[in-house]
Structures are given as C-alpha cells and as structure tokens.
Design a protein around this nucleic acid. Structure first.
Lengths: 368, 368
DNA sequence: ACGTTTTGCCAAAACGTTTAATCAGGCAGT
DNA sequence: ACTGCCTGATTAAACGTTTTGGCAAAACGT
C-alpha cells in the first residue's frame, strides 16, 4: 500500500515565500491582492504560480485570529432540524452564506432543553468567533433570546424578540390564508369552512385571522358554524370535516389548517361520496412535501417561505455585521415574508346551488 | 438608548491572569485542567471564579491555531439538504458531534455543480482546518471523492468510494425489503406483487433484490407477472397498481417501491372498490414523513436510517481522527445500516382463497 | 545544616496569518 | 550634486492561545 500521498507537509505561507524568494508579506499581499500595496506584475505572477504548484491553502484559523473575524455565521436551531421543513431553512441560509463566502456552523438545541443549555450552545458558537448568529425557532410569538447573543449581531427566525432588539423574520401566515380564501371566493364559493387546529399556537391564530380577513374582503359574513377544529393531523381533519360535510347546508369549500388535516378531509369527502373538487373544494396550508403534490387530486395550498427566511437571515446578518459597531442596535420592525399560494387541482368553481351558473363536475378532466 | 451593554471589551486569558495575579500559563492550566501540571487548590479556585465573573470565553480560533486542531467537522452534502430526508442526516451528525464537543460546518453542493465546484467546497472546509469531512450524497453506487478529501480523514454517506479508500455507510435497502416481504409472507400472503420504480437507481436494484430474496426465503416462486413499474411518484404507483389489481388473479399484497407510489396504490384500490387492508395489503418504503402516518389506513413501510447514518459518520470520523496518522488508510468494508420495518395498519392476513383460514375483513376495527 | 525532592508557578516560544511602518534604490527636477 | 518622490519590496509586531522547559521556595530525609 503506497503511503506517499499520506505525507502532506501542510505548506504554509512562508513555504511559498521561501520558494518564491520573497517575504511573507509580499505573498500575503499578492494572494489577497491587498489594496494600497504594490507588487510588480512579474513577482505577483511568480508568487501566484508557486502557490498553486505547492498546493498552498491558507489557514483560516490563523487569518481569523489576526483579522478578528471568522467569516463564519452560526445557525442555532431549536429542534427545528427535526421537522421536515427545517432543511429548507438551513438550505436557504447555507446558499446565501456561500454567496457571501461565509460558512455556516450549526448547532441544534432540543426543544425541551432548558434556557441554560441554549445559552451554552450560543456560547459555543461565540467561542468559535462567529461573526453573527441566527436563532431559528419553531413558530413562537415571542422569545427571550439568550443574553449571550447580545455579544454579537443576531437575527431571529420564526419569533419576535421579547426585548425588541433583535431583528426578526416570520411567515405572513395571515396574508397567505387571506389570499387562499380570496381564491376560493373568486371561484364562486360563499360557504367556505375552516377546519382549524385545536391546539393553540401562533399559526392557529394567524391562519384564523387570515381566514376571517379573507371572508371580509370578499364580503362574506362570518358564520361560526363553518368553523370546526381537530388535532392538527389527518385524523383531526377527518373528524372535523366529517362534521362539516355531513349536513344539508354543507360548505362548498374547506380551508384546512394544514396539509395533514387536508388529507383527513379527503378521506371524509370520499366516505361521504363527495368528489373533490367537483362537490367540495379543499385547500390546505404548508405545501408540505410530499403530501401536497402526491395526494389526488393534487392539493392547492400555501407555501411557507422557509428557504427565503433562511436566506433573509444571513443576508440581513451580513448587513448588520458590516454596519459600524452599535448601529445594529436600532432594531427595526419584524419582517413578514409572504406565503405564496400554490394552486393545484383541488379547487373548482363552486357547484351551482342558488346561482345557476353551471352544474357540478364542471370541467377538470383527470382519469377517475 | 443605553449602549452600556454594547461595549464588550472581549476579555482574554491575560485579562484573567492579570486580575488573578498569576501568569497566563497558570490560567490556561487550571481552566483546561491540563494533566501533569500542578496548581494549588487556592489559586485554582481563584482563577476559576475570576474567569467566571469576568465572563471569560476562550477564543477557539487561537486555541485551534496553537493545537492544530479545530474541533470542527465538515459536512459536505450533495444536494441532499433539499430532500425532506436530509434533515435527519444533518440532525444525526449534529447530535453526535455535540456529544463529542465538536461543531459541524456544513456546505451544500448543488447536484448539478461540476466536480470543480465540489472540490472548491472541500477546499473551503479544509482551509477552515476541519478535523474531518463527511461527504453525504444522494444514494449512488460509487463516487470519486474529490481528491482534496485525501488531506484529511473522511467518510462517505450513501455511496462507495470508487478508490475504496474512504469508509462508507449505506442503508441496507435489500435487507429491509426482504424483511417486509417476510412480514407479508408470515401474514399468509403468497401472491405478493412489487410495484417498482421505472427509473434505474441503486435503490431500485436494492429493493428488487430484497423483494426476490424475501420471496425465496418464504419459499414463494418468483412470478414476473407480479412485477410492475411506474414513475416513482403517486401517479406511477397508481397506474402500476391499477394494472396489477385489475385482474382475476390479483395479488393479495403489493410492495410499493416507495411511500409516494403507495399513495397511488391506495387510490387504485379505492377506485376498484378494494378495501385496504382487508382486500389487499399495501406496504411502502422510506417511512416518508408525513405520508406514511397520515394516510388511511396508516402505511406499513420501511424506514431509512438517515439519522443513524449521520451519527455513524461523525462517530467513525472521530475514531479515524484519533487513530495515529495514516492508520485510517486501511479502509474497511462499507457499513450497511439496517432499514427497520415499521408496522402500521395497512397489512392484514391474506384473505382466504385456497386456504380457508378466515374470511376477508378479519379483525382490524377502524371507523369506516 | 545540608542535599534532594516536591510543589507551585512562570517566561518565552511557538501556531500561521495580516498589517503598520520602514527602507533601499532609481529617477526627475532643481 | 543635492533634494524629494515614487516603486517594490521588507521587518517586526501583533492576534490569543498552548506548551516546553525551567526555576525558586518549601518540604523532606538524614
């Protein structure tokens, strides 16, 4: 077994300098093409080529020590890496980071870990001299950021800072929900039900608010008999929608709290012999892969801007970092990113009942 | 606006030393309790308390520079962060890393990025002096690892190293598939179909192999008329299963290439008026959240050991790192991690046909 | 009282960079 | 021939740790 390759003598900047017959200063200057510094084109070229053929790779630890900046940003996630969504946040952050020549160091705190553990995680990142920290949480209303985060620029994903000092980005769930209802209203639906989640979280509130706002702008009066709830899973959607659909004046469309509940809605409809979307339109929320696209008919829903929030976070973080010293203290209002509705196949015009426009089963082919 | 907090003079080890009236050496010794070194309990305690009250945080960049080890490990993912599964790999790696006091630096390469870009990514990690690198790919047979990875211990997730020098971990898909078929056979099924994916990837092969092996150990002769295929999505599962089920001698159980195709199988069964699992049992593969648990009846399937592969990777990586110099070159055989079957509700005993054991619709309640 | 060991601590040299300050020489203008 | 100014480089001091190799003083054995 040849081990010739295993001997990697780790060439440093002075090896390059020695080989090129110049000082390390010069090497540093040409390799970073430092401004306000002069080197003849001849030596520059020589240094560069020697560095290349020696396989020189700079040591960012050493550089970071000197320049007091690591060009790393820390991503502190709160359990979020567990959820299927999480990847998109990380991906968005990572790609935006690459774009700025930063690397991402990630640490995941368990949701049930105490504040103490969370502070330790923040400290671990700070010890690594990260230039900034992203604190990504599951959707909370407010959160007290670990005070260690004050030592370094920080942004928040999915929650507001209770002290109102750390910039935050959140999904505009109400907006998305309102748009979704608008879409249903435009399709002629007037009896639009809402199958909400029975557990109280910010998302529950936001989507309800959006639903009501959507009704209002469509000029549809609120009817609390059209608001049901269940656990935020398929089973809950099933029972809630069974209750909603199994009556004479059933709604012509149901907005489900999330895609999982929408799956339950599909089952309820099927058992009652109602076709989707001809007899009842169903919409969900989350655009949860791979449900939304795999279900039949494919589900019209609203996407959460996970990728965008991740990208927004590192993007504004870099701005904070560059801004002079304490300037980043002037925290702005939170940023609400839009939740775009993605239309698929589960909505059709409302079946004619009092308005005799068209019969049920209008259009929409699909083998069935 | 008070900016008293914004002034963080960054206390270093010498500040502690000065305040404690000792040398930095001593501080370093007590804070790391370096072996083979002596400090009186009195001064030790004093140093510790002063460090605490001064809020000293060590600078890992400086420490890394001196000790020539960063205690970071790099995770290089190939597009994988896009898939819903990815999070689990990252999570597994991250938690195992935390357990070893390591932090994870992640970089994501696009699948369509050239080898050149991939090498640049590897280089970026190496510049950061990571102690080791995990290269996580979507499931490949073999891959040529960027040669920069030779500079540092590395492990591979989801692919074999073409040069056979980098340790690798992969999911034992064949094993999982075989177990799944065994489970069906034990339930009395003899006509077990396989709805495979029509596109050829390692997983296609592996699951087919497992299917055949499962049949063989159950003493069931292979019947190619029971093997269908379609695109690896709900639509493909639908057409494949429609074809399989819409005949007189239809199978009593179908093993679908993945959970998405299983969703298509559900639809096919429903349209043909077949109940699951009473008339036909369906199983999938991937245990893809949230499909498998949300579908009705909940899908029996096989889980991929994403989390475990991530954890395995950093765990063996730390072993490699600790082992002396070139010892990690003696690459071992790849590790195949088991894919456990997770049983839910979509399998029931085979309906009696020639063996008059019990009638259809045996047991299994469920509101319907 | 005198060697020897142990105890407790410290000075200084690394680690691989960046950067402020300086310098030798050539060239132009007086 | 002197002064001054560019040009192309260099020297040396950081950055914040760890670690090697000590060295004084205290403790100990005789």
């Amino acid at each position: 077994m040849n081990n010739e390759e295993t001997v990697v003598p780790k060439v440093g900047i002075r090896d390059v300098a020695r080989a090129a017959g110049v000082s390390v200063t010069t090497v540093s200057h040409v390799l970073n093409d430092t401004p306000h510094t002069r080197t003849s084109e001849a030596t520059s070229e020589r240094v560069r080529s020697i560095a290349r053929e020696l396989g020189y790779t700079p040591n960012r630890l050493a550089r970071g020590l000197r320049t007091r900046t690591s060009e790393m940003i820390g991503l502190l996630t709160e359990e979020i890496a567990t959820t299927p969504h999480a990847g998109r946040i990380i991906l968005g952050a990572q790609e935006e980071a690459s774009r700025h020549n930063l690397t991402l160091a990630i640490i995941n705190s368990h949701l049930d870990a105490g504040a103490e553990a969370r502070r330790a995680d923040a400290r671990a990142l700070i010890e690594r001299q990260v230039d900034g920290i992203i604190y990504a949480t599951v959707f909370h209303h407010e959160v007290s950021v670990p005070r260690e985060l004050r030592a370094v620029p920080a942004v928040l994903i999915g929650a507001l800072d209770r002290q109102g000092v750390v910039p935050a980005v959140l999904p505009d769930e109400a907006g998305g929900a309102a748009e979704l209802v608008a879409l249903l209203a435009e399709a002629g639906h007037r009896r639009i039900a809402f199958a909400n989640s029975s557990i109280e979280v910010p998302a529950t509130q936001g989507r309800l608010v959006g639903y009501l706002r959507g009704l209002e702008t469509a000029g549809i009066p609120r009817d609390d008999r059209l608001i049901a709830s269940g656990v935020s899973e398929a089973a809950g959607g099933y029972t809630a929608c069974l209750e909603l659909l199994d009556r004479a004046d059933r709604p012509t469309a149901i907005f489900c709290y999330n895609d999982r509940m929408a799956m339950g809605a599909y089952r309820a409809a099927q058992e009652l012999g109602l076709r989707i979307p001809e007899d009842v339109s169903i919409v969900g929320f989350d655009d949860q892969a791979p449900i939304a696209a795999s279900v039949y008919p494919a589900l019209t829903t609203v996407a959460l801007p996970h990728y965008e929030m991740g990208a927004w976070a590192v993007s504004t973080l870099t701005r904070l970092i560059q801004s002079t010293s304490t300037a980043w203290y002037r925290s702005t209002d939170p940023t609400w990113l839009p939740c775009p509705v993605v239309v698929r196949e589960s909505v059709s015009p409302a079946p004619a009942r009092r308005r005799g426009v068209r019969g049920p089963g209008s259009g929409r082919s699909g083998r069935r």
